[in-house]
Design a protein around this nucleic acid. Sequence first.
DNA 1: TCGCTTGTTGATGG
DNA 2: GCCATCAACAAGCG
Length: 271
Amino acid sequence: MPELPDVEAYRRFFAEHAAGRVVRDVVTDPSMLRDVSESVLRDALRGRRFAQPERHGKWLVCWTDGPALLLHFGMTGTLVWSADEPDRHRWDRLTLEFEGGGELRYRNMRKLGGIWLAHGQAEVATILGRLGPDALDLPAPRIARMLGGRRGQAKAALMDQAFIAGIGNLLADEILWRARIHPKRRLDSLDTDERVRLGRSVRTVVRALAASGDAAMAHGSWLIPVRRDGAACPRCRTPLARTVAAGRTTYFCPACQPEGIERGRVEPGEP
DNA sequence: TCGCTTGTTGATGG
DNA sequence: GCCATCAACAAGCG
């Protein structure tokens, strides 16, 4: 379920299993390679030692003592560690075999996302060049200020990786529900209090889930665990509504997140 | 068979 | 130029 909190968990997982280890061999599904061939990737990584990985938004940057391996997980990507038995799966698109045993696998059922190779910081920056600041790094007041400079729909902004990197469809619904903002509210119709609520909600949701994953949702009220047809709002028990915003299925509470003012709206039949 | 799915990009049209 | 929408990518599921 790769949004920022999931990729943050992958970063820690990669650090635990691969940092400090030397690559013995590489097996790839060439259809997932985006800027490199199978043989070039293999030659570039064999004998290299992985350093501490970094994450920006939904991207994982796996540095070695040479080039960096960049992973994007699409909608179904994950990391798998195997200490002994091969038990490889047909969805394993990249397998890193390590000296001394064990292998780390990038598994991805659908082939969205992909694998990149970058030589140096400049190439990494080129590949990640369109991303905005990472959602985990942003103080709430700064998010609130950033929101003041945009005009489109609230949910579209939250999911725009060039605006803030790391928030996907589920997190955006959670953040808007917590801030009590309708997903289609125009940002230039938000008052100061609403922008502050939204900024704080981004901060709260992203930090809680990045720190402890789904376990964070065991306490307090969360939309994500009940986000489906027929469910009730965890706050007010009103049946959740479903719509499409920013091209994605969107759940919200019609009572907690009222539509608000649509600028420029004209009633039919008005003179 | 159709519609839907945690993501991203590019085309299109208002 | 801005912004919303949709198809495409791809594989699985109900």
